[in-house]
Nucleic acid binder design. Structure first.
Lengths: 233, 233
DNA sequence: GACGTTATTATGTATATACATATTATGTCA
DNA sequence: TGACATAATATGTATATACATAATAACGTC
């Protein structure tokens, strides 16, 4: 590092992160304005701005017009999870991916499913159930309801070579989603499918996806208790 | 309203997101270069660049120098979770927060805890256990090990008015973390503390935080099965 | 045709400038 | 004093320009 400090916004961001971590800038403290910082770092205000904005997005800074920028008092740090398709998730972990279609038919959706999708009353939907395996062992049981009004072209699909998961991500991108994670107990049927004991703990992910104003699909994904969802930040 | 009615990068980003969602730009397809897009939208290249970069960060676009920008083939969408302080989490949900200190002493850390923190051999650490309650009901059982070398000033703390969680976020910001989520079964002790039945499913979050090269704390947070972790995107 | 070198090109970043916008601080008048 | 209009200010965004960088395409040599 030469006397003329590196001035890429990455370096500036790192230096500011260091100051926050080492409490040079204490939690809650007002830090210098962009103008001042740009002079200190010997760069343009836009460069400082970009570094500050990224730190603010990460939750360690709080910015308000006119009021200035301050170090977050309660750093509500945010973690980012990638939401891959199951096949990729398994293959990334080094497993051999397979999936097994368990059922695929049009049915009247139960009330709670319709409610989760924001629909006033139950209606016919495509109900697809399948099991994803890693190295031959059950990895995830997927129980999915698909709104045929939103994705009519899925009607004839047999899902013999492609899983509904993958079909949907490549044929019907969504713009909004709600994801819920929780722990639960395996029902008799679920335990049987996943090859675990009844009443065993399972890791459950539920996801509803939408295009503006229109629900596409509700899916409940169930993993054996051995599953780990990991993230770094 | 034409596509070029507004030219803020937000609007441009939204328009491009729409084109991706509606498959005007199909998955895997190469989209026009920044120069071309800036002409189409009637704005500067920098504006298009910002919109494209944000979409790329969100995972719907993949950019490579010289090769250009294409729509992600397998949109590894990313979800963002805020990691709030438990107290905030409870209060945000409208609960009355309380916490109860269960134990607070220096002990030799078990081997698996030391390993999780990247330490070669076990050593003395501060072991703090406490229970966080929402409206008087057990919400989270926190079992924490703190590396006294990294945070020596915590030694005398009694945690009578402030939880270790809150003490650490305000006194020792971290720069890296690894977070693991999974489902498990409550041990007899855990079940007793959380007020659930033994063998009930529980939602477990484990987190190790570091300052560069130095582990600060390992914490295991256990929620009753009724707990829901929710995110939108 | 197989190779290493060079040119080309799309994105990445920096800069000065300008104006927009939200919010606070200030001043005025009843 | 209190309500309300007005000025001041820090951040937010847009723009034209310039150069950096990575990856590909083109080329020439053997």
């Amino acid at each position: 590092m030469t006397a003329t400090a590196r001035k890429s916004f990455h370096a500036i961001k790192a230096e500011m992160a260091r100051r926050i971590a080492e409490r040079v800038w204490a939690p809650g403290a007002l830090i210098p304005g962009e103008e001042v910082l740009s002079i200190e770092f010997g760069c343009a205000r836009a460069t400082v701005n970009r570094a500050l904005q990224e730190l603010a997005r990460g939750g360690v800074l709080v910015r308000k017009r006119k009021a200035g920028t301050r170090v977050a008092l309660h750093p509500m740090r945010e973690a980012r999870f990638v939401i891959p398709i199951v096949r990729q998730e398994i293959e990334t972990k080094g497993g051999a991916y397979q999936f097994r279609l368990l059922s695929n038919q049009v049915e009247k959706a139960p009330g709670d499913v319709a409610r989760r999708m924001g629909l006033a009353k139950a209606k016919d939907m495509l109900h697809v159930r399948c099991l994803h395996l890693s190295d031959g062992k059950p990895y995830q049981y997927e129980d999915r309801w698909i709104n045929l009004d939103a994705v009519p072209s899925i009607r004839g699909e047999t899902f013999e070579t492609i899983s509904p998961n993958e079909w949907l991500v490549t044929h019907s991108p969504f713009s909004q989603a709600e994801i819920v994670f929780h722990a639960g107990v395996a029902s008799a049927q679920e335990a049987d499918i996943l090859g675990v004991s009844e009443k065993d703990a399972v890791f459950i992910v539920e996801r509803v996806t939408f295009v503006p104003q229109k629900p596409i699909t509700f899916v409940r994904m169930i993993h054996p208790a051995s599953h780990r969802m990991v993230t770094q930040l």
